[in-house]
């Protein structure tokens, strides 16, 4: 992966972001920063605003106030496809594969050069990192299991060579053994220094894969720290994550 400019600046920064759906305010001044190589968990209960934060970053729910910066350059206000081209790889919830495309064709649709013209991720490279997909490249994506579809959506977004990967609840609705496989995959990507932001309700899953955590509640950031610090903070765990 070619290095983004400004090594000192976080890859992704969300600053004082307010988001409304119609008249109702969902996010209240969200602040978030993800540095290069980090795997940041965005934790919070059901309805806390995790998906909305992702949509604000991806340009789907544009913030009314505040800014989203990618390597220091504003992407807020841009159309979603321009945000993607700028280097944000958004993997929405619900595993939205193209069901009537083969696995390989899903990857082909996602293929694009990264923001600096790099094509680090190719289908062949994907198959090395996702050996499970290699064996099913000609299978219709709609016939894959939930876990396989989740891996495919991640792989498809990687094909666009993003600077940061946004994963919205990758463990949702999957059997524990499959969740473990997804966790392994995320750790593999982390080992390849892919920068990742994961939204999750599944705190145990996040403690296993993330390097940092930000907790949100009712549309506000209530806590942000390294993952070990969060692991030791029973008060936060009890209060916002109900463990």
């Amino acid at each position: 992966m070619s290095a983004p400019p400004n090594p000192g600046v976080p890859i992704l920064e969300v600053k004082g972001t307010d988001v409304f759906y119609g008249a109702s305010q969902i996010l209240f001044g969200i602040d978030l920063a993800v540095a290069r190589g980090q795997t940041m968990a965005l934790l919070g209960r059901n309805g806390a605003g995790k998906s909305t934060t992702f949509k604000a970053i991806a340009g789907i729910a544009p913030p009314r106030r505040g800014q989203v910066l990618l390597s220091g350059a504003a992407v807020s206000g841009k159309a979603p496809y321009l945000v993607a081209r700028a280097g944000i790889g958004y993997v929405p919830e619900d595993r939205q594969v193209f069901p009537e495309h083969t696995v390989e064709d899903n990857l082909i649709v996602g293929a694009k050069a990264g923001p600096r013209g790099d094509r680090h991720w190719t289908a062949e490279r994907i198959y090395e990192v996702f050996p499970l997909l290699a064996g099913m490249r000609h299978r219709m994506a709609g016939r894959l299991s939930g876990g396989e579809q989740q891996m495919l959506t991640i792989a498809r977004t990687l094909m666009g060579n993003p600077d940061i990967l946004l994963l919205d609840e990758p463990s949702e609705g999957l059997a524990p053994i499959i969740v473990r496989a997804i966790g392994d995959l995320i750790r593999t990507l982390r080992g390849m220094s892919v920068t990742i932001l994961i939204a999750e309700q599944n705190m145990h899953f996040c403690l296993g894969v993330a390097t940092h955590a930000t907790v949100i509640d009712k549309g506000q950031v209530v806590y942000s720290a390294g993952i070990d610090e969060l692991r030791g903070n029973d008060a936060i765990l009890q209060r916002y994550l109900a463990v």
Binding site: P80, F98, G160
Partner: peptide, 17 residues
């Protein structure tokens, strides 16, 4: 392939750039 994907899930196609 992109056009067929567009027919099925335009928002996802947009998110892919």
């Amino acid at each position: 392939k992109i056009i067929r994907a567009l027919a099925i899930n335009p928002q996802m196609v947009g998110a892919l750039g």
